[in-house]
Design a protein around this nucleic acid. Sequence first.
DNA 1: GTCTATAATCGGATAGAC
DNA 2: GTCTATCCGATTATAGAC
Lengths: 183, 183
Amino acid sequence: MNARQSLIQSAQELLWERGYVGMSPKAIQERAGAGQGSMYHHFKGKSDLAAEAIQQSADSFRDGADKWLGASGTPLERIRGYMLRSRQVLKGCQIGKLTQDPEIAANVDLRRPIDETFQWLQRRLSGVLAEGQQSGEISKNLNATEVAAALISVIQGGYVLASAAASPKPFHRAIRGVLSLLG
Amino acid sequence: MNARQSLIQSAQELLWERGYVGMSPKAIQERAGAGQGSMYHHFKGKSDLAAEAIQQSADSFRDGADKWLGASGTPLERIRGYMLRSRQVLKGCQIGKLTQDPEIAANVDLRRPIDETFQWLQRRLSGVLAEGQQSGEISKNLNATEVAAALISVIQGGYVLASAAASPKPFHRAIRGVLSLLG
DNA sequence: GTCTATAATCGGATAGAC
DNA sequence: GTCTATCCGATTATAGAC
């Protein structure tokens, strides 16, 4: 891997582990095995590198979700598959976690890829839910967009409960809870 | 207010705004109008002060929730009241947000008050749900503990979606979604 | 209890040599 | 493209005077 991509990958890992505020250029360089000169040659600075790292993380997040939501099976089966897929629960969401960082929330270049990813996921889930409403698997009384937002929120909030407890159990409990509501 | 409590309050605000990693002793002192000598007289250091601040925030979080869940009305009305109560959506959860900070997750003294608060809330919500199951307002096929975890997660995850969008709308959409599922 | 002085380390970069 | 040198402010304290 070249130095540029190695720096991006190190930044992705550190953003996930420490957030933007908690990630120093020095730590990125050490993890990537690159010097300061290299980093400041390839990127304007910390926020420029972070923007690229976040974009790549968002892209792979989307690919991962689409694999489950576009799988074979009935709409409800695909939703359940996505909700129940294995995750690194105690690490939190590589994308969602970043929204709670004050400097990411305040910088539109850092926030936009995250916003677009969640908008995409809401539309994608909402489409699958609507399919299920057509086929009669899911109640037509529900608003698909609202239920999609709730499903995404359960995952994101499940990470919060799991981190608080230092255990993945509350995460899985919450997923089971919302799936039982969905029927 | 005395210097000690003023320092605690400033730490509470900064933890909410910037997280533990992003909060410097200097910023706490400036906001509290106190000097370094004062802060290090009253507290052993940053983490000692943060532990006290988090404990007080957790206590008031619990009081706030209990007011809604212990209000008058049927169980389902009280759940809806709690879920729909007004919140500072774009600031995020004063308690839940902290779990995503790496140094809080890694320090049991900082994490414990948060864990205990969410455990309490889950039990409290679960109790109200069980009441509703007794009275026939809520389906007896549901597991009250799992549904309680899902409800809390929707709130916590709603904050994430709202921060990503820089808008409270996805938060309210998710709450409406899960309430429609609950019936 | 609070103040000021001091200090070692880190943070986030810039400059110029190679 | 990468390296080393340099910079200045911030971080997280400690020491001792008042």
